[in-house]
């Protein structure tokens, strides 16, 4: 049982780590502001969900898990809000979302 929980939690932690890594890579490599923001918000949502779930499995039923659930709720509430506020102010300050180059090449 314990082994199963350990394996599951490591899978979740590794998955979360992968999301954070891809998010970081995307934030560095993608061409414009909105796509970079899209990549970075992966870290906020999926990355934090998976990592915190993984830590929760390690913590078991304890006060630490309650605290982790609170942190997760806070992150799920504020992360997407921050992404929205960022995208919204980028749009309002006049940055137009542009079509990708592959789209225009196909047409």
């Amino acid at each position: 049982m314990n082994d199963a929980i350990d394996v599951l939690s490591w899978v979740l932690l590794a998955g979360g780590g992968a999301f954070v890594f891809v998010g970081g890579l995307g934030a560095l490599r993608l061409p414009n502001c909105y796509t970079r923001m899209h990549a970075a918000s992966r870290t906020d949502s999926m990355g934090s969900i998976l990592i915190l779930l993984g830590i929760m499995l390690q913590a078991g039923w304890s006060l630490a898990t309650v605290k982790l659930i609170t942190i997760l709720a806070f992150l799920l509430l504020t992360g997407p809000t921050a992404s929205y506020a960022l995208a919204n102010s980028a749009l309002l300050s006049g940055l137009k979302p542009e079509k990708s180059q592959t789209d225009s090449a196909e047409k």
């Binding site: 806070f74 509430l77 504020t78 809000t81 929205y84 506020a85 919204n88």
Partner: peptide, 18 residues
């Protein structure tokens, strides 16, 4: 302030008491 931006406002006001 951010009065016109509904989502940040709602979430922010929700978070302040906590």
């Amino acid at each position: 302030g951010l009065r016109r931006h509904l989502i940040p406002k709602v979430v922010g006001l929700l978070a302040i008491p906590f």
